[in-house]
């Protein structure tokens, strides 16, 4: 087991290295971060040249990658523009926990990401909980009554939900529950942001501001989870041991909940476990529409300005989380399922 974990970790590291190189190359060519630094007007020639040099963007890609990876405090860099390297650099590199500084805000990337993680997790975990809860209800119900009228109706509704682009659901729900409800004098929900400034950042405020984005996110993910749970349950129900249990005359409840669910739980838990690290990335579209200050918006804001350190930071964080969660899931899986051996 220990050997397996060590092996997986050693497989994970080159994987992350390859991801980082690929993304770095992609990022180097998606646009010019200095092009938009003049705000509404065009960046001046002298400022362009100065900023390119000061931000180290004039260095070859390999050097920029090296500085990003291991920092530049071991070599002298030119800090005042006379062309002669004079001082040691100040960057430590991502391997030593220094994600660099945003080209746009000049804030440390770790700080920018750190500010957004709690907000994103709040939104995403709430959506995940709501989604999984309802998906279990519907998935199990429709598996037990496959092809019944209810199963068909629910399946149809699920497919409709699944087929709607999320921005459509978001704008629609915002329009109905915030604008129309207010017009009609009904209790209505707030539109954007995390709280009402006049009331302050109270738990209640955050809760009611979360309803619409959580609803939009859940509608979409809910369908996929329900289908997965349904098909997993169906598969388990058609297994021989379930048939055997049935034919032995065990009560239906016992068959379903003890024999079938116990075995269906494993793949379901695995899928949820593997999805968890992706929650870190937030929801790009939903966060944008509801002005939710999460990672998805951070990504979108900074990718549109080619802010390499921030974008790389977010992507590498998610990628690392995925690798770690995969290993954890594997281990738990092996621990739960005696058929799997790692040696």
């Amino acid at each position: 087991m220990v050997r397996y974990i060590v092996k997986r970790l050693f497989q994970g590291l080159p994987l992350l290295l390859v991801i980082s190189i690929t993304l770095f190359l992609l990022m180097m060519n998606i646009g010019d971060p200095i092009a938009t630094m003049g705000g509404r007007t065009i960046t001046r020639q002298s400022d362009r040249e100065r900023l390119t040099r000061q931000l180290g963007l004039d260095k070859p890609i390999s050097v920029q990658y090296l500085y990003w990876l291991i920092g530049n405090d071991w070599t002298k860099v030119d800090s005042d523009g006379d062309g002669i390297p004079d001082n040691y650099g100040t960057r430590h590199g991502i391997l030593r926990g220094d994600f660099g500084t945003s080209l746009v805000t000049r804030k440390p990337v770790t700080e920018l990401i750190g500010e957004r993680i709690p907000n994103t997790l709040l939104l995403m975990v709430a959506s995940e909980v709501v989604t999984v809860f309802f998906a279990l209800l519907f998935g199990i119900y429709s598996a037990l009554r496959q092809y019944s009228v209810m199963d068909n109706i629910m399946t149809a509704l699920l497919f409709i939900a699944y087929s709607m682009p999320i921005f459509f659901v978001s704008l629609m729900s915002m329009y109905i529950f915030a604008v129309l409800f207010k017009k009609w004098g009904l209790p209505y929900l707030p539109t954007v942001g995390m709280f009402d400034p006049q009331v302050g950042k109270t738990p209640w405020q955050i809760f009611i501001h979360m309803i619409l984005p959580v609803f939009s996110l859940s509608v979409t993910y809910f369908a996929a989870y329900s289908r997965y749970i349904r098909s997993t349950m169906l598969e388990v129900l058609s297994q021989d041991y379930v048939r055997t249990a049935r034919s032995k005359g065990l009560p239906r409840r016992q068959v379903v909940y003890i024999h079938a669910l116990k075995n269906a739980a494993l793949p379901i838990v695995t899928v949820i476990g593997l999805d968890l690290p992706f929650l870190l990335g937030g929801a790009v579209v939903t966060e944008r529409i509801f002005a939710w200050p999460g990672m998805g918006r951070l990504f979108l804001d900074h990718v549109s300005r080619s802010d390499l350190p921030v974008v790389m930071g977010i992507l590498m964080l998610v990628a690392t989380a995925v690798v770690v969660f995969q290993i954890i899931t594997d281990i738990i899986y092996a621990w739960l399922d005696p058929r799997i051996r790692f040696d």
Binding site: P190, T191, V192, G193, A291, R297
Partner: peptide, 20 residues
């Protein structure tokens, strides 16, 4: 003065219309 960052034009209009 409370400044809220609303990146989407449509959402901004909705907020202005709703009095937010």
């Amino acid at each position: 003065i409370f400044i809220r960052f609303v990146p989407d034009d449509t959402a901004q209009t909705t907020a202005l219309v709703a009095g937010d």
